[in-house]
């Protein structure tokens, strides 16, 4: 090998081993990157003149602040815990309606062809359309209060749950159905002992997605017309350029969504432990 080739090979080898060394400790890299980003954020926040990006420390202060104070200037809105409760109530009401009814309709649609024919078109239409577009109609029909928010949340999450449920039931392994038939299962037994247990993974996925959509729904509703709760805080602090508090609220919303989704995910994993 000539010197040029040897150098080239050496470069490739050392470059490759660098990459390999990094890959061996993915956790470390993650932490490093996160740390680096936090540092950047802090630096940019403190030094730059853009008010848009406050330093992380400022945001933490803002977060502490809204935990207790009620904003007075530009409009009152409660403390963070109060608004968390407000949003949470709507979320629970809307989700509590949407999840069971979504599963119910999904099950009916999978079981009875007539039901499927009746609803299929509308469900698909609602799934594909931008749900936000329907919010003005909801306002016209239900006003600006709690009911309207619940309806919005329902609309956001119902369809995803329904579709996942019906797909899950319909896509159960056919050979299991055949096997149960050969052992003399009745239609009812087939449904309850094969279809439903087999559909649990997808139903749980639907619930997880539904909750994610519900959170989007409640924030959308609050930001777009109700101006209460967490979404309302976003609007208020945004309009008054109170960046630190705004970011603090956004972080809280993200944390809320994260906690909810993770919990459902954990339940999901527990229920589907039998999967490979």
């Amino acid at each position: 090998m000539g010197t040029a080739q040897r150098d080239a090979t050496a470069k490739i080898v050392s470059g490759a081993s660098w990459g390999q060394a990094l890959s061996r400790h993915p956790g470390a890299v993650q932490i490093l990157v996160a740390f680096f980003l936090i540092l950047c954020w802090e630096a940019v926040g403190r030094t730059s003149r853009f008010a848009i990006l406050p330093p992380l420390s400022g945001i933490m202060q803002g977060w502490w602040n809204i935990l207790f104070t009620r904003r007075a200037a530009g409009g009152t809105i409660g403390t963070l815990p109060e608004n968390l409760l407000l949003s949470g109530q709507a979320l629970v009401a809307g989700g509590g309606l949407a999840l069971p009814s979504g599963i119910l309709l999904g099950t009916l649609m999978a079981r009875y062809r007539k039901v499927e024919y009746l609803f299929d078109f509308y469900i698909n239409a609602f799934m594909s359309a931008p749900t936000a577009a329907f919010i003005p109609i909801i306002v016209v029909l239900f006003g600006l209060g709690f009911t309207a928010r619940v309806v919005v949340i329902f609309l956001y999450s119902f369809f995803v749950v329904c579709v996942n449920t019906s797909t899950g039931i319909r896509h159960v392994d056919r050979s299991l159905v055949e096997m149960a038939r050969s052992f003399g299962a009745t239609e009812r037994q087939l449904f309850w002992k094969i279809m439903i247990p087999g559909a649990v993974p997808l139903i749980m996925a639907g619930i997880r997605l539904g909750i994610g959509r519900a959170v989007k729904g409640v924030i959308n509703a609050e930001a777009l017309f109700a101006i209460v709760g967490l979404g309302g805080m976003v609007m208020l602090y945004g309009n008054s350029f109170d960046m630190e508090k705004l970011y603090a609220v956004i972080f809280t919303i993200v944390a809320l969504a994260y906690v909810l989704m993770k919990s459902v995910h954990l339940i999901e994993k527990r229920l589907t432990r039998w999967q490979e």
């Binding site: 848009i52 994610g212 989007k216 409640v218 602090y237 945004g238 309009n239 705004l246 919303i253 989704m261």
Partner: peptide, 11 residues
Amino acid sequence: LMTPTVSLVPL
């Protein structure tokens, strides 16, 4: 993925 994107609009 989990953030309700509308909360970013004021930003």
